[in-house]
Design a protein around this nucleic acid. Structure first.
Lengths: 217, 217, 217, 217
DNA sequence: AATGAATGAGGGTTCATTCAT
DNA sequence: CATGAATGAACCCTCATTCAT
């Protein structure tokens, strides 16, 4: 009847990570104090170090958790079955914005970890980079490719470049909405309609170009 | 011809700022120690405070200086007189990459100050934002517009969206090269030829679209 | 019988305050180093700031504590039940001297806080003043009045002035003994007999005047 | 035709001391910055150290100078020729108050140097004490004695104690007026009439006692 | 296992004093 | 001789980490 070893209370661990995510996202690594995390997670400071060994390691764990959470929460089917690119972009964008609104801290932390983040102590940077590479990889291409394959491609156009173009456009729009959310966290999805429309217009350009008088061979 | 009173030694001031730029760019605000700056600038710690009043203020000054330096070093004529967009993009990009290689710290600090910078103490953030707004403004649009006006625009295309497209593409490429430089600071401009070519291909898409079978007009 | 939560260890707190009192009394505010207090109180520097937030606040707390300690230690009954003024003065004085010998640091700090104390940083002065007003108030008058009321007063003499006279005399003697104690901290009460006698003689003058040939109406 | 060595410019020296007196009086030793003294004395910081060797020494010199200035300014004849004690006290007090108003900094510094002055760095204290002893000595007794000798003394009264009594009274009143001046530096001599009157009443008590029913033999 | 009081290295800042010009 | 820029020791305070209970 040996008592099962339970070195870690999963609920407390979860609380700590959730709080850490929030704190790191709001204040950055250096200005987040373990004391605060402990208090808000209703846990002792000592426990954080027992569970996570160090602040740096807590950060790493939190970032990993955050990426996982975003990935898991993302319901790719929402836009995966779009019939054309514009529809997909619109759906995907709207969905992403919705998620940014729903998980502002998660997104903020993810972006912070991605950004060159001289915000982080020297030692953490390479490790954070690694997480990115492992997790983010190439999710966008995977989603876009099936649709792209159904579309007739103008001769001489490399599909990879189309994907790159869409990626560029996507992060451009993402940046725009992030700024809006930072300025006013209480916006609704509808408030981003203008941005979505712009994205649509940009996609139109990507599809048909902006030049007139084209004589396509 | 009385000697002008210099409340501070310009050479030392310059040295401090240069070193500060490097340190801030490499380690971020919090992990940069005034002591280090002083040592590397061959100056006493006290002098930094005499000149700049506080670390925060040194940072602000350094960021301002960095923006000014970049702006001043930038020779816009290099690409301003391009006859078509693709040429302009290629020239502009190549030039930008060249500058990133030549001024890696300057660019790194500029990006850091621009990025959401939870790296910075709460209080500094709004001030840094202000510098951005004052300085960066809208340099790209200004350069692109004259060329765009010479090009025939497909009906229904908003020129603003074309500019946005170019901007998105530009920052996408910029990000890519930044990552390369961080990975290996000793690259030459030629090493980025692949990137430039890609940019060219992307511009081609923006100009003519990627879809085949277009029946324009 | 749950153990009461002590946010701080009372023993350490007491040790810190005791040491602080000594150090502040000996060296003044500015020349007292938190490091020293910590060492002598067998406590870490950090703990002082955890308990008292800042050096200034430690000073304020220490001064308050010191006043409280003196007040509490003072056994007013010793002289309160004197039958005549001279006896009261003698007893009171002797008692005060005894206390000065017993609590030299306490008295030194109290006087220092009372004195114009340009010794203190600008900001502390009003706060220290406030402590004085709250605590010291008018203890002497309260004690003297009952006795004075039992004594026949020469016509034309304002009892307030008699009290003032006694106060003046009292601080005069107090000053004298303070100087003696500073010069030699190891004196005994008996060593102050001369002073007490003088006080008695002075009181005699206050009672009967020093002029001869009086023709009192 | 050797040029006379003039190691010290007396005007600058005087300016420094005057300013130092003001600054030390206002802010105390530790909170007075040599930089400020230099600026206000329109002199370079280096000069202060050339002339006075160190801040501590400047303080000492300033205190000495201040005592000398007060002594010199004091016109003792004003009250020396009084015919009775009360008149002398009134005149002397009024004169002292007048001087306090005229030389507030001088008096403030003198009191500060006299007060226990844990305000001063360890090393300075004995030296300041010495200055006091040398200078202040026993000015009051010297002035009072001639008058006292003309007055009939009640048998059993020690003239020294009368002098002590007057001294006590004098410093009591002095303290009172110092507080008033600190509270409002712009008072006129007339504003102290109440105090002077009280002093007179107190002297009356010292002369005739406050007890009624005296049967002086 | 959990707590949170205690630690102390480390960093920003001040300011008396020095010294090259 | 005079200047004031430069120095750097010293000090207050923070906070990640440890450890006795």
């Amino acid at each position: 009847m040996a008592k099962i070893r339970q070195p870690i209370d999963p609920e407390k661990e979860a609380r700590i990570i959730e709080v850490a995510m929030h704190e790191f996202a709001q204040h950055g690594y250096r200005d987040t104090k373990t004391e605060n995390i402990a208090t808000r997670a209703a846990v002792s400071k000592g426990l954080i170090f027992r569970y996570f060994k160090s602040k740096a390691n807590l950060y790493l764990t939190t970032v990993r958790y955050t990426f996982a959470k975003i990935n898991q929460a993302a319901d790719l089917s929402v836009w995966q079955d779009s019939t054309d690119l514009k529809m997909m972009i619109v759906r995907g964008l709207r969905y992403k914005i919705q998620m940014q609104l729903q998980y502002p801290d998660e997104f903020a932390l993810a972006m912070q970890a991605y950004g060159d983040s001289s915000a982080l102590p020297e030692k953490l940077q390479p490790q954070v980079q690694k997480i990115w590479q492992d997790v983010v990889a190439d999710s966008v291409p995977l989603l876009v490719t099936p649709i792209l394959e159904r579309l007739p491609m103008r001769p001489g156009v490399d599909p990879n470049n189309v994907r790159a173009m869409i990626l560029a456009l996507s992060s451009f729009i993402g940046e725009k909405s992030k700024v809006m959310i930072q300025a006013n966290p209480h916006l609704k999805v509808a408030d981003f309609d203008g941005i979505v429309e712009q994205a649509q217009a940009l996609m139109d350009i990507v599809e048909h170009g902006f030049l007139a008088n084209e004589t396509k061979a």
